[in-house]
């Protein structure tokens, strides 16, 4: 009995020793993380709570058939590259575009919205648009497509070819000088979308 207690005591000492090493080395590590995890706050839009997740958590949803990724960046940026399987719903063209992709967005699906990163509000604006349409299961991937791409997760290049002619006026997506209301038809550009916070 005494021997067992001695083994348990030494095991505890080893546990404490190596735990301390790990926690201390974190201070000098290139991959350091805070000692205490602080969950990102949930957004609340029109009374609907929208969790904010990072790209790693979003990656776990990619293979889930009940999840649809929705790219709220401009059509031009979507056409270059996007999250694998994502649908395009640009903030500045969402009304026209929504009519085209509505069959691909069942109301019961969980939609993962993303744009250019934590500083970008396009995903929130699209969420505001979708909630009155009956969508309640919305999630926002805060790091956006840059975070996803940087992590090396699966992407589609030129994913909107199949929609071809159904794309809204390309001039509205390839930049330009308009900066109208965000819900207005065919307005905005990559730059204005990114910058009009």
């Amino acid at each position: 009995m005494k021997a067992c207690f001695g083994v348990a005591l030494r095991a505890m000492a080893i546990l404490l020793l190596w735990s301390s090493v790990g926690i201390s080395l974190n201070l000098f590590s290139a991959n350091a993380i805070p000692w205490v995890y602080v969950p990102p706050p949930d957004l609340e839009i029109s009374g609907v709570k929208i969790p904010l997740i990072d790209e790693k958590e979003a990656r776990k949803l990619l293979d889930d058939p009940s999840v649809v990724f929705v790219d709220t960046r401009t059509a031009k940026d979507y056409a270059k590259s996007t999250v694998k399987g994502a649908q395009s719903l640009p903030r500045k063209e969402m009304e026209e575009r929504f009519i085209l992709i509505q069959p691909l967005l069942p109301e019961e699906a969980r939609l993962v919205l993303f744009c250019y990163g934590p500083q970008c509000e396009d995903a929130e604006r699209v969420a505001e648009f979708l909630i009155p349409m009956g969508y309640r299961n919305l999630v926002i991937m805060s790091p956006g497509f840059p975070g996803w791409e940087k992590a090396g997760y699966p992407v589609d290049s030129g994913p909107d070819k199949e929609l071809g002619g159904k794309q809204p006026d390309p001039t509205s997506a390839t930049g330009g000088d308009n900066s109208g209301p965000t819900s207005g038809p065919s307005t905005g550009s990559a730059q204005s979308t990114r910058g009009d916070k």
């Binding site: 080893i14 190596w18 926690i23 080395l25 993380i33 000692w35 969950p39």
Partner: peptide
Amino acid sequence: IRNYMILPPEWSHLVALALPWVEIGA
């Protein structure tokens, strides 16, 4: 660790820092 939903999420970083070193040490 958080995916298992066993520990409070706030503890996940501390466990993620300590546990692997206990593993490698042992």
